[in-house]
Nucleic acid binder design. Structure first.
Length: 414
RNA sequence: GCGGGUGUAGCUCAGUUGGUUAGAGCAUCUGGUUGUGGUCCAGAGGGUCGCGGGUUCGAGUCCCGUCACUCGCCCCA
């Protein structure tokens, strides 16, 4: 084992991995821009307070999963564990309230100090969207439709399930929370140790516990959907009708909750069973209280985030990348011509690699290795005649082409 | 933070009840073929068996510790 280790939970992306990674990001951004979303790139770190205020002091993310450190100037800063807080901070500090509605797409690395496992790393990447300033269900519908559309474009529709739920407005949520606490408090002996703790801190979380005892206790628990007030119920119904109208299939899951305090009304999750324990692939919800809670003007918002690594793992095989052309000079004198030919072809928009060393057989082998479609061979005869031998590496056919016509000849096969 | 599994060649792995020189396939390199690759044939290089300690005449194999990876809990995208 080498002395030089990567930091636990971090990975180097290269070759096929990064192709898949970029494919996810670029597909997502392309689709999002069709919906009017513009890209925003916020810093990867913020004052720690930004995350404390948005995520709440009790969430596990804040209490034990943040990379927090002190700067030389004595400020406490934190590597972002998620993307919404930074966007919300940018909204406030940039005075963007005058420009609503705003639609943002973001992508980039996030950091959480967690024990790595399948689909979970310490530095991971998310793509996400935020729609700020639209209080009506149309926003919820559009944001979910966008998520579904991206997954479709990634050819993942069959691999994921959309679950939705309503967390109601503040009034409904407070009432439901009280009811839930009353219910579980009468049954603490049936709950797992973890859930007894959740009861005090985040009772909604008991609903999606994986513990068998908890699951049994949850079966007869009061349901959120039965405790929504009229306004919340109507809001949720409109979201469901809107999704149905767009032919987006979904399942209402009363146990679906959010880990973070600022969510209300719509919560949704696209999940898969193909990734082991970390099955959530794209998830989000409405956060009407967030901007205000951070000290900004009252501004409704809704958004989601998706894990790029998780999506990349699910992705079907990507189409082969464009195959390059291999230029193969045979001697030193020919190499000079080969460099000029290579330069010309590259400027003509072709992707070209040149074999710098080895005998001809070795250079041909190298051409195979980079999956070249054609070899452009330049020996003394070719150079003397101002031509090149163009060999189709799949069929073995080869023809002589004037050097001046190479770009045109090869472009036809691109 | 807690629990399970795994660490042997660049990669994937085998290695018997502890036994003398640790193997295979793939990959790499060389030659057969000094202007023609993907196939084939022949050969070569490459390992302090994760690290440290212990038991033993003898440890890749057994024991203890440690580190790393991995899966799950927790949390979450």
């Amino acid at each position: 084992m080498s002395q030089l280790q990567p930091i636990k939970g971090t990975h180097d992306l290269m070759f096929e991995d990064i192709r898949r990674h970029r494919h996810v990001e670029e597909t997502a951004f392309e689709v999002a821009s069709r919906y009017g979303y513009g890209e925003i790139a916020t810093p990867v770190f913020e004052f720690t307070d930004v995350f404390k205020r948005t995520l709440g002091d009790t969430s596990d993310i804040v209490t034990k999963e943040m990379y927090t450190f002190e700067t030389k100037g004595g400020d406490s800063v934190t590597l972002r564990p998620e993307g919404t807080a930074g966007v919300a901070r940018a909204f406030i500090s940039g005075g963007l309230a005058q420009q609503t509605p705003l639609k943002f797409f973001y992508r980039g690395p996030m950091f959480r100090y967690e024990r790595p496992q399948k689909g979970r790393q310490r530095q991971f990447h998310q793509i996400g969207v935020e729609l700020l300033g639209v209080p009506t269900p149309q926003a919820d519908i559009e944001v979910i439709a966008l998520g579904a559309h991206i997954l479709k474009e990634l050819r993942l529709t069959g691999a994921v399930t959309l679950e939705i739920n309503s967390l109601g407005d503040i009034e409904s949520r407070a009432a439901y929370r009280d009811e839930l606490v009353r219910y579980f408090s009468a049954r603490t002996d049936q709950l797992s140790a973890d859930s007894r703790e959740r009861l005090a801190r985040n009772p909604l979380r008991i609903l999606d516990s994986k513990d068998p005892a908890d699951k049994a206790a949850v079966v007869d628990a009061p349901r959120f959907t039965d405790h929504l007030n009229a306004a919340s119920k109507d809001f949720f119904q409109q979201v469901q009708d809107g999704l149905a109208a767009l032919d987006i299939s979904f399942k209402v899951t009363p146990a679906l909750v959010r880990g973070l305090d600022y969510y209300g009304h719509t919560a949704f999750e696209f999940t898969t069973d193909a990734l082991g324990a970390q099955g959530t692939v794209l998830a989000g919800g409405r956060y009407d209280g967030l901007i205000k809670q951070m000290g900004g003007p009252v501004t409704p918002g809704i958004g989601w985030a998706a894990g790029v690594e998780r999506l990349a793992m699910l992705l079907p095989e990507l189409a082969q990348a464009n195959r390059p052309i291999a230029v193969i000079p045979i001697g030193d004198e020919e190499t000079k011509v080969a460099l000029a030919v290579t330069n010309t072809l590259r400027h003509a928009g072709l992707s070209v690699d040149i074999a710098y060393s080895g005998n001809m057989g070795k250079r041909m082998t190298r051409a195979n290795k980079i999956k070249a479609a054609f070899a452009v061979i330049l020996g003394s005869d070719e150079v003397r005649d101002g031509v090149a031998t163009v060999r189709n590496l799949d069929t073995g056919d080869q023809v002589k082409v004037a050097q001046a016509d190479l770009a045109r000849h090869l472009a036809a096969f691109k």
